[in-house]
Design a protein around this nucleic acid. Sequence first.
DNA 1: AATACATAGTCTATATCTTGAAAAAAGTCA
DNA 2: TGACTTTTTTCAAGATATAGACTATGTATT
Lengths: 398, 398
Amino acid sequence: MVRPERRTVRDLRRGNRAVLLRALYFAGPTSRHELTALTGLSAATVSNVTGDLLADDIIVEAGLVDSDGGRPRVLLRVNPTYGFAIGVDVGETHVRVELFDLDMNELAKSEFALRPGAHDVDVVVRHVLSGIDAVVADSGVPPSKVLGVGVGVPGIVERGPEAMIHAQTFGWHSVPLGSLLRAGTPFPLHIDNGAKTMGQAEMWFGAGRGSRHAVIALIGSGVGASIIADGVTYRGANSSAGEWGHTKIAIGGRGCRCGGRGCLEAYIGAEAVLERAGIDVDTSTEQAAFAELVTSGSPVIDETVEYLGAGLANLINLFNPERIVVGGWAGLLLGQHLLTTIKQRAAENCLTQPYSTASIVLGRLGPDAVALGAATLVVDEFLLSTTSSSVSREPAVS
Amino acid sequence: MVRPERRTVRDLRRGNRAVLLRALYFAGPTSRHELTALTGLSAATVSNVTGDLLADDIIVEAGLVDSDGGRPRVLLRVNPTYGFAIGVDVGETHVRVELFDLDMNELAKSEFALRPGAHDVDVVVRHVLSGIDAVVADSGVPPSKVLGVGVGVPGIVERGPEAMIHAQTFGWHSVPLGSLLRAGTPFPLHIDNGAKTMGQAEMWFGAGRGSRHAVIALIGSGVGASIIADGVTYRGANSSAGEWGHTKIAIGGRGCRCGGRGCLEAYIGAEAVLERAGIDVDTSTEQAAFAELVTSGSPVIDETVEYLGAGLANLINLFNPERIVVGGWAGLLLGQHLLTTIKQRAAENCLTQPYSTASIVLGRLGPDAVALGAATLVVDEFLLSTTSSSVSREPAVS
DNA sequence: AATACATAGTCTATATCTTGAAAAAAGTCA
DNA sequence: TGACTTTTTTCAAGATATAGACTATGTATT
């Protein structure tokens, strides 16, 4: 119940420093003058704080801009090579590790295939760790400049020092992935559910930009969602919020791979859709088969769209977002061909007032943005807490 | 995307003052010494800030307590008569206005019956305004000490200066209730959905105490929910978040009074349950009939519990709360007799991990806490922003 | 009764912080 | 060159929280 918390006068500085850095990061090259408007700080403070940040090499000057008839403005920007972030995507078919600078340019990449069904924890951990070593070596980035590693994994991630994972599809039950990775790498770790990391990528660089209340719906073989409440990913009490795929849309309905009945995923997840259409596939042919099915005019797709519309409507009724982003490879395929129908079905199943203020759009980053999103976790932390003096970091997993 | 915002050194004071006052309000009589632990502030600051608050008469001393072998502690508490809050419950059958001191003791009450179906805006506004006048007069509280009026209404409340209301069951479409009330009363207004105000009452004084992530499920004739995310009511982009009753639990299912099909409310709302059981009632006999039905062993009740369990499971999957509070008159009746079955059905329809960390409990405040909750909106604002000097308030509806 | 001890609360000196105003810097224009 | 414009920095003033010394107010012991 007790909400706000600030104490000393030093926290003020830290806070304002973070506000300013964040504004600079998302607004791109900006003059000090504009920053006063963006942050609400006085010109004196902006000058003071930017001075600090320049001295720390966290931001750099980025050219001049004329100001009609006066001193030209000096543009400032975040120094893209001040630090680097590593993003890891642990998927059903692969482990992908990418290294980015602060502008999110990909500087190196390392990928390992996973054999279907072979999601041994040891194997995954080994791939992740060697991937980290590989991208650091390939990019030539000195390890001291690596700000951290973000990891997107399937299933439920309990945040905490151990980062316990529960992932049914991987057969992972209470796997302390944080501890396991920590033993093999010195970099700060940020472990989160893959749907949430991808959601953050869409929020920062994709279809979610500019909205404060949004839901990113991810439809692939499975179904998940990332809920953005007031600009930040909503996690709930134990970080498992957003398990949209296993909400019930039919009592006693179709069986789901989670063991339950009537889950939304059992109707709109690509695996379930293909099964319902009587198409037999394996992981390698799944996407092609689904793409063909979508354009085939099959009644199964009509039904799928009906359920998808209802599922989206439920999200709108419960969360009242300003935007719904439909993503995931299957979601993108459905959306590319049937977006208007999907919207129609959503409207039919939703209260008019919240529906009218929500826009349903397609994701813009493609299905492979999990690693990018994972890296944004690192950047997010960096923007929030750049304590200039102390370089030491507490070795916590967050 | 830009989240934190703090500026001047004065905001610090305001913030710390609010933190301290809040701690004092919820912890009850507390010594300065304990407050240092509760707030994290230094003893010096606690002394300093409490000095201010004492001088402003916002807090008062409340006796001594021995401290073994040393100077006794002086207990402090919020001055219950520093100000007063008015809460209004606009329901389907009545308009109820109550006046509370800061300890939430009810000092005066005024009630008006509404004829079924007669929810004319003018009538409601007149009742609310004369109710406000009545409770102020009855209690003898000087108008200058009334901190504000909280109003809980059905339907969707768009927050903003006009406080536009959309309430299907009342036949209200885009009614600017804020403007209408403002014209007739000088007190600051806080208008919100009744389910949300009641949820806040349960969080402050009822079954929700102590949890930061909770959902208050309200089941009466209709069905609603209040979502508490990180200690505060979640509202979404336009304050309509939490419309649980009209989420779809069956595609193409039973018709609902909202016009849609397959809404949860069409299965577990008391009106719908009675209809499904073939029992014909009006507003006056509804509750008694429902109470009888619940204990009758009717298969309709079994089915209702099944749907309720699934509905709760969906809330747990999506929001990952630590607690679910079942309230509303019908919810309480169901829960009193069938809580274990409800929990079982919820477990069957929910992912195990989030279910295992959520407790499902009954509401403790009874169905009439809407006005109390509405008054807490006023107190919440009071605790957050007690600017000592300036007594003037901006006349905004929030 | 006097003294020692323990705990609670206040006071003071200090280091920070943001801000407004004034000053400086860096241009354009005539 | 000098007047003017706009951006940025500098500086003094006002406000804040903290640590640590100090005061207040009890009980226990001699």
